[in-house]
C-alpha cells in the first residue's frame, strides 16, 4: 500500500522534473535565439563594412571634384577671397545709409583653367574657423565672394532643358543692410524667385550680384561678424 508520504514525494518529483524540462527547453530556445542574433550581428557588421567602403569610394576626391565642377559654381577658396577682419568696416550709425563696401575691391578673377576645384571633402582638420577676438586686426575671415556672372557656370537643369542662367533670373532685391547672417541669407533665399535646377548658395549669390556688377562678400563667418556688429551698436 502506498502511504501518504509516498504520494507527496511522487508529486514533488513530478513538479520538479516538469520545471526542469521547461527550463531546459527555454534554454535551448534562448540559445537558438542568441545564435541567430549573433549571425544577424555578423551580417550587419559585414554590411556596415561594405557601406563604409562604398562611402569612401564615393568620396574619392577626384570624383567629388568632378561633381563639384559639374553641379556647383563653388571653386577652391583663393587667397584673394579672404579678408582681414579689420578690413571689414563697422556698420554705419544710421541704418538707412548705403551698403559699406568691403576692403579688397579686386573682383574675383575668372577662374583659370589650371585651377579646377578642390574637393569639398569631409574636413575635420581644416581649420577655417574665424573665431579670434574681433580686436585682433590680423584675423582672417572667410568671405565667400559671389563669383562674377561670367564665371558662374549655369546650373544644369535636367532633361536637356535650357539651363537657368543667373542672368535670366531677376536680381534679388537685397535688403539695405548687408546680409550678415546665415539666417538672413536663408531668408533672402526664400524670397528669391524659383530657380530651375539646383539652388546653391553660390548660384543665389550670383543672381544677387547680377544686378550690382561689383562683387561683394555675401557670406561672412557669422559669429565674429555679429559680435563685431554687436560691439558697434
Amino acid at each position: 500500500m502506498i502511504g501518504k508520504s509516498t504520494l507527496v514525494w511522487l508529486c514533488l518529483a513530478t513538479v520538479a522534473s516538469g520545471i526542469l524540462y521547461h527550463t531546459s527547453y527555454r534554454v535551448q530556445e534562448e540559445q537558438e535565439h542568441l545564435s541567430s542574433l549573433n549571425r544577424q550581428i555578423q551580417q550587419e557588421r559585414q554590411s556596415i563594412q561594405v557601406l563604409r567602403a562604398e562611402w569612401a569610394y564615393l568620396n574619392d576626391p577626384t570624383r567629388l571634384e568632378r561633381l563639384a565642377t559639374e553641379h556647383s559654381t563653388l571653386r577652391p577658396t583663393k587667397a584673394a577671397q579672404m579678408v582681414a577682419l579689420a578690413a571689414i568696416p563697422d556698420r554705419p550709425e544710421a541704418p538707412a545709409q548705403a551698403v559699406p563696401t568691403p576692403a579688397p575691391s579686386t573682383p574675383t578673377p575668372a577662374a583659370p583653367a589650371s585651377q579646377p576645384a578642390t574637393k569639398p571633402a569631409p574636413a575635420p582638420e581644416s581649420t577655417y574657423v574665424a573665431s579670434a577676438a574681433p580686436a585682433r586686426p590680423q584675423t582672417m575671415v572667410v568671405a565667400l565672394k559671389a563669383p562674377d556672372v561670367q564665371t558662374a557656370t549655369p546650373v544644369k537643369a535636367g532633361g536637356g532643358k535650357p539651363a537657368a542662367t543667373p542672368k535670366a533670373t531677376k536680381p534679388v532685391e537685397r535688403p539695405a543692410d548687408r546680409v550678415d547672417s546665415i539666417g538672413a541669407l536663408m531668408a533672402s533665399l526664400d524670397a528669391a524667385p524659383p530657380v530651375k535646377g539646383k539652388v546653391t548658395l553660390a548660384s543665389v549669390g550670383a543672381s544677387a550680384t547680377a544686378g550690382q556688377k561689383k562683387a561683394q562678400p555675401i557670406l561672412v563667418a557669422e559669429q565674429t561678424l555679429s559680435a563685431k556688429l554687436g560691439a558697434a551698436r
Binding site: 540559445q31 542568441l34 545564435s35 549573433n38 555578423q42 557588421r45 559585414q46 563594412q49 561594405v50 563604409r52 567602403a53 562611402w55 569612401a56 568620396n59 571633402a121 569631409p122 574636413a123 575635420p124 582638420e125
Partner: peptide
C-alpha cells in the same frame, strides 16, 4: 561562448590622418 564567436580575424583597415578609408577588407 559556443555561439557568440568573435568575428573571423580580418586584416585591419588603413586610414588617412582624418580617418578616411584607404584600405579595407570585405568578406
Amino acid at each position: 561562448s559556443a555561439t557568440a564567436r568573435p568575428a573571423p580575424i580580418t586584416r585591419a583597415e588603413i586610414t588617412d590622418r582624418n580617418g578616411v578609408l584607404l584600405a579595407t577588407s570585405l568578406a
